[in-house]
Each structure stands twice: as structure tokens, then as C-alpha cells.
Amino acid sequence: MTQQDRQRVAAGLADGLSYAEIARRLERPTSTISREIARNGGPANYRPQQAHQATSRRARRGTPAPPREATPPVDAMAEEVIEMAVRTGLPRMTARVRVDLLLSEDGRRTAAELTRRLQVSPASVSVAVNYLVQNGYVRRERDPQRRRDVYVLDDEALYRSIVIGSQPTLEMAKAATAEAEAFGPESPVGQRLAKAGMFLERVIQDTIESADRWRALLA
């Protein structure tokens, strides 16, 4: 990469762009951007001038790349999964926490571990895990020995998230049906609301029944 490329990487990080978006703007693979940032201080400490000088020194010494970079880095793979989660509507910080749990060996992290690994504030992790717990993506366990919470992404997480995520739409369907009655079933507005309520209720019921039917696949 040229020094100008590295300056654009730093600018992208400062603007909060994802690795994938920075790569797109530089017309380079996401894995290249991920490796560049990972071996030069990470997203919080990346400095383009120092990165360029360090790369030049490594080239002069003929220093081999670290073993971790000889294979596709986890950061690059994780970034792609994060981007997909964000496109579904998940907040980016929340998506980062969820993906880090997903890619962990046992699906378990403490808040301190998440803070250290993602290089973010404890408050950011707290907001993210609370969202994930409330929406069924992860569950909270208490470690009695160390008196701290452990966040767990288990095999039932997908099932819980589908069931919990269906509830707001089901409530919307019931509200539409109630409003249809209030406007009168013969009125144009009442008929429109009744159709919408019936459609939403049937779709959500089918979704929950399907989740129940295939739940055993997660066991």
C-alpha cells in the first residue's frame, strides 16, 4: 500500500467506516485492509505515517509476516459477518459484540473481555449486551466465584431471538384488528386495517410455528 492509501485508511477509521467500505473506496480486498490495520496498532491506534515506516522497515529486513497473517485473518471474516448483521438492522456496536461471541470458542465472554477485545468503552459494551439479552440473542449468567456476569451465545439463541422478535409485530397485528373494530368493519379504513392485522398475525404465527417445528435442529 502507498502512504496515500494508508492516509485514506486512517481517514476512513476516523469517520467510523467499516473495513469493507474502506476496502471498497480503495478498490482493495477487505482482508488487505483488515491485515493492514491489525498489524499496525488496530482501529483505535492506527497511524498512517508509522504504519508506512514500519512496513518499509519490515521490507528492508525481509521479516516474514507473523503466522496469524499467513492465513485469512479472523478480523476480515468477522467484518463481513458484521456487515451482514448491520444490513438486517442491528446496531453496529451490537453486531460487533454478537459476532465476537459467535466466533469465540465456547460462545462465552465477560464484559471485560469484550471491552478489551473490541477496544471500546465498558459503557458501549453494556448497551450492546443489554440489547442482545433483551432480544434473545444472548443470555446472561452469573459467575458466583468471581461475582461477574458472563454473556453466553448458546444453541437456543436463534430460536429465542425469532420468538422475541416476533412479539412486536404480533402486537401490531392485534392493534390493527382493534382499530378496525373501532372504525367499523364496513368502513374503508376498517377493512384496510382488518386485512393488515390478519395478514401480520398469520405470518407471525407461521413464523413461530416454523421455529417450534425446527427447534430440534439447534439441540
Results as ranks from 00 to 15, higher is better:
Gln7Lys: 06
Ala11Ser: 05
Ala11Val: 03
Leu13Met: 01
Ala14Asp: 06
Ala14Cys: 03
Asp15Leu: 13
Ser18Lys: 04
Ala23Cys: 12
Glu27His: 14
Glu27Arg: 13
Glu27Tyr: 11
Arg28Ser: 12
Pro29Lys: 00
Thr30Pro: 07
Thr32Tyr: 15
Ser34Asn: 03
Arg35His: 10
Glu36Pro: 04
Glu36Tyr: 02
Glu36Lys: 09
Arg39Ile: 15
Asn40Ala: 14
Pro43Lys: 03
Tyr46Trp: 08
Arg47Pro: 00
Arg47Glu: 09
Gln49Glu: 14
Ala51His: 02
Ser56Gln: 15
Arg58Phe: 05
Gly62Ile: 03
Pro64Met: 00
Pro66Val: 01
Pro66Cys: 06
Glu69Tyr: 11
Ala70Gly: 08
Thr71His: 13
Pro73Tyr: 10
Ala76Asp: 05
Met77Asn: 04
Met77Gln: 13
Glu79Leu: 05
Glu79Pro: 00
Val81Cys: 04
Val81Ile: 09
Glu83Val: 10
Ala85Arg: 12
Arg87Ala: 14
Arg87Trp: 00
Leu90Pro: 03
Pro91Leu: 12
Pro91Arg: 07
Arg92Ala: 04
Ala95Thr: 03
Arg96Ser: 08
Val97Glu: 02
Val99Gln: 07
Val99Asn: 07
Asp100Ala: 13
Leu101Trp: 05
Leu102Val: 06
Leu103Phe: 15
Glu105His: 12
Asp106Phe: 12
Arg108Ala: 06
Ala112Lys: 14
Ala112Trp: 05
Thr115Val: 05
Leu118Glu: 06
Val120Met: 03
Val120Gly: 05
Pro122Val: 07
